[in-house]
Computed example of a mutant assay.
Amino acid sequence: MKNIKRRGAVAGVLVLAATAAAACSPGSSGGSSSGSNADGTKKVTIQIDGAAVPYYAPLYAAKEQGYFKKNGLDVNFTYAQGSDIVKNVAAGNVNFGFPNGDSVITAYGKGIKTNVVHTTYQQGIGALLSQTSSGIGSVEDLKGKTVAVTDLGSPNYIQLQAMLKSAGMDISDVKVKPLGSGVIVDALKNGQVDAIVFSRLRYYALKSAGVDVQQILSDKYLPSFGNVVITSPKTVEKDPDTVKAFNKAFGEGIDYTIKNPRAAVDMSVKKYAPTFKGQEADITTIIEDVFTKNLWQSATTEEKGLGYPDTARWQKAIDAQQSYGLIDSSFKADDLVVAPDELG
């Protein structure tokens, strides 16, 4: 077993100032829940990446089906951007976070340290999306094309570089256009760019909207991870039982969603994400075809259980961030990732 205490130092002093504004911003918790309810359940908060969407159905199912309560927890959901989530968890402002794994690696490499305690998405969700009319049938076809990414420091910019490198090209061979997440998909639809590197889930939304779109998954070129559960090293060291309880309930929520995808989606839309009303059938298909088959489950989870990390894959993702300049130096995946059977 790893020496958990070796990784127990908290970066609180380093990040408190940086996280004060984020912790008090709309959509964040402003402080971690603590204490117990009259029924004996422990109050905890998890801060989730982005906003409430039906794809977070396993978390919602864990609450609505009583799995959290059965495991002694009263879980509150709040929402924020990935980088803010990592800072808030590291500083102890929230108990758990559910950001993109790439954000966790970048922050750790910059001294904002958390621990991944549940590798929920076993692979990344990035993809190169283009309209068929663009003539981009392979990475080699990107030469001279305009490609949008959300930010020059974002994971999808790294994914683009990895794709180009596989074809013997580099960033100078394309025209890169940074666009915010709120407009990047419309830029592709309207023909303002030839391609975008963004979430593979948008492929299905574009298809449903009648756009003749194609995709090349970035995970083939750069191993990465979508949303994962993080907590502070202090929590791992001092309160492993709460982490284990959370993981157990969350695992039950994933299992429920795999077995009852439409019911889980309907509940999520009705109680948490009403703006998705009318899209339940399409979302259920995505849950079945993408999340169940490729994201929540893998050869690793089949052998070890849901949420179990492939440490070698994590190491490749960490080393890639160093090689593309997102972090100054690499570090050991074992220092970042804590497997469920390594908790106290």
Rank of each mutant, 00 (worst) to 15 (best):
S34L: 09
G111H: 00
A11H: 07
N76D: 11
A90D: 02
Q81W: 15
V15D: 05
V53I: 15
N88D: 12
N88Y: 05
S32D: 10
A52E: 04
P58R: 06
N37R: 15
K69E: 11
L14C: 02
N76E: 14
Y67R: 10
K43I: 09
L73Y: 10
L73E: 05
L73Q: 03
G12E: 14
E64C: 08
S36Q: 14
H118L: 04
F77L: 03
Y67A: 06
D39N: 15
G50L: 13
V15K: 01
N115A: 03
F96W: 01
L16G: 12
A90W: 01
T120P: 03
Y60Q: 07
Y79P: 01
K70W: 04
Y55G: 12
K42D: 15
A107I: 02
V94E: 04
E64W: 00
K63G: 02
Y79C: 07
I125V: 11
A80W: 06
Y55Q: 08
V15Y: 04
F77A: 10
Y60E: 03
S33F: 12
S29Y: 04
A38L: 12
V86D: 00
Q65Y: 09
A90L: 05
Y67C: 08
G30T: 11
V86G: 00
D49V: 07
T106C: 03
T120W: 06
S33G: 15
T45R: 05
Y121H: 15
L16N: 10
G82D: 07
G109N: 05
L59M: 13
G27H: 12
A107P: 04
P99A: 03
G35Q: 07
T119L: 09
K70T: 13
L73I: 07
I46N: 00
K43Q: 15
S32R: 11
S83F: 09
T114D: 02
H118D: 06
T119G: 08
P54Q: 13
K110Q: 13
T19P: 01
G12T: 14
P54T: 13
N88I: 12
G101R: 04
Y79N: 12
G82C: 08
I85K: 02
T120M: 09
T45K: 07
I105Q: 00
G82V: 02
V86E: 00
V86F: 02
G97V: 05
A17D: 15
K63Y: 03
I105C: 00
I105G: 04
Q47T: 14
G27T: 12
G82M: 06
K113H: 02
L16D: 12
